[in-house]
């Protein structure tokens, strides 16, 4: 029972980290901080604009695999991995 509780708590922690990164990258970098970030150039593009157009999507895709990797590690730790 305690094992299940711990597994679920760590799972929720991962989800909140993912949601926080999702919010910071999409709303934070793409909207709220777009003007200061636009002062920085990345390959000729303004950084705020780049995050709004491409950077956030790259981060979302990376988050998918990071979350999956972390969950697999968690599964192993709690001996509930897929066979």
């Amino acid at each position: 029972m305690e094992n299940n509780h711990s597994y679920w708590r760590e799972n929720l922690r991962l989800i909140f980290i993912c949601l926080a990164i999702w919010f910071v990258v999409s709303f934070g970098f793409g909207l709220l901080l777009v003007e200061p970030l636009n002062e920085i150039r990345l390959g000729g593009y303004k950084l705020g604009f780049w995050f709004a157009q491409q950077g956030s999507i790259y981060t979302f895709v990376a988050l998918i695999f990071w979350y999956s990797h972390q969950m697999n590690k968690l599964d192993k730790k709690h001996n509930v991995e897929e066979s």
Partner: peptide, 25 residues
């Protein structure tokens, strides 16, 4: 595995929520 499937399933919903939220903002 199931976690990758779940994350891929959830991601488009988050993108749509982000799109609608940005539009309102």
């Amino acid at each position: 595995n199931r976690h990758t499937k779940l994350a891929i399933f959830v991601a488009p919903f988050l993108m749509v929520i982000g799109y609608i939220g940005s539009d309102y903002f």
